[in-house]
Simulated scan of single mutants.
Amino acid sequence: MATIDRFSGHADLYAQYRIDYPSELYEFLLTRIENRQKAWDCATGNGQVASELARYFEIVEATDISAQQLEQAVRKPNIQYTVCPAEQTVFADHSFDLITVAQALHWFDADAFHREVRRVGKPGALVAEWGYGGVQIDAAVDPIFNHFYEHIVGPYWDENRRHVEDRYARIPFPFSEVEQREFTIYRNWDLERFLNYLRTWSSVQKYIRQHGHDPVLWIADQLKSRWANGERQVRFPVFLRTGRKV
């Protein structure tokens, strides 16, 4: 399976406008981890998850295939960033107490990645994979957003995106003690912040490359009167699955 990189070309936008994850998700993970010596955050992007893990672990290894993304990453003394694919790393066998991958598993060769996880995870290591679905705002905005998602940029999503829509149900998870949880991200955004978040989508960037203009301008026109001035609460449903290496 060829390596897929959909984010290097707009790493600056990604670093500024991509969402982070709720504290409840990390609290859930931490209740299931006894040893906090070393964690691996795979496909770290701009280091959002790695930065949070660095608060709790002695060492965090964070990897991504995009050097441009890592140039934008949060710097902390106990985070080591490395450019490498998810499926083949330089880490020693049995290295990690926790392995995380956020909103990225669908870009991997999942079978090869899970083989690597079993190699580098310590016995009993916790494996956590999560993602998030489409934004929810209110009855006035949601139909416009859904039309944009499905019909304006819908044809420009990679087929891999379907794994997010079905919450990784078709991707095997070969670990023990499997648990699944749901969380919600709540953010208060003005319209400009929301539109710039949409510009981080791989489908939007693909549309721009093919057509030479920004499809987000369409939804901007549709939302001006509905958003009004100030901020609106936006919600993202998060799905998480965890398991242990035997």
Rank of each mutant, 00 (worst) to 15 (best):
I4Q: 13
H10N: 12
H10L: 11
D12Q: 15
Y14E: 04
A15R: 15
Q16Y: 00
Q16W: 01
R18Q: 11
I19S: 10
D20C: 07
Y21H: 13
P22D: 09
S23Y: 03
E27F: 07
L29A: 01
E34W: 13
N35P: 01
K38T: 09
A39L: 05
T44M: 08
N46A: 14
G47Y: 10
G47S: 05
Q48D: 09
E52P: 02
Y56W: 11
A62P: 06
T63V: 10
T63N: 08
A67Q: 13
Q68I: 00
L70H: 03
E71N: 14
E71T: 01
P77F: 09
N78A: 06
Q80F: 14
T82G: 04
P85A: 03
Q88G: 14
Q88A: 15
V90H: 15
V90K: 13
V90T: 12
S95N: 05
F96M: 05
L98F: 11
I99V: 13
V101T: 14
A102E: 07
Q103S: 12
W107A: 07
D111F: 10
D111Y: 07
F113M: 14
H114C: 05
R115K: 12
E116Q: 06
R118Y: 09
R118W: 14
R118H: 13
G121I: 08
P123H: 08
A125S: 13
G131T: 06
G131W: 07
G133L: 02
Q136K: 14
A140K: 15
V141R: 04
H151P: 00
I152P: 04
I152C: 00
V153S: 02
D158F: 03
N160H: 13
R161I: 00
R161N: 04
V164P: 11
E165H: 04
R167I: 08
A169D: 02
S176T: 13
E179G: 08
R181P: 03
T184G: 04
D190I: 02
R193K: 15
L195P: 05
T200A: 03
K206W: 03
K206S: 10
K206A: 09
Q210R: 14
Q210M: 04
H211K: 15
D214L: 04
P215V: 06
P215D: 01
I219T: 05
A220N: 14
L223Y: 06
L223S: 08
K224W: 00
A228F: 12
N229D: 15
N229E: 15
V238T: 12
V238E: 07
R241S: 05
T242N: 01
R244A: 03
K245M: 07
K245Q: 10
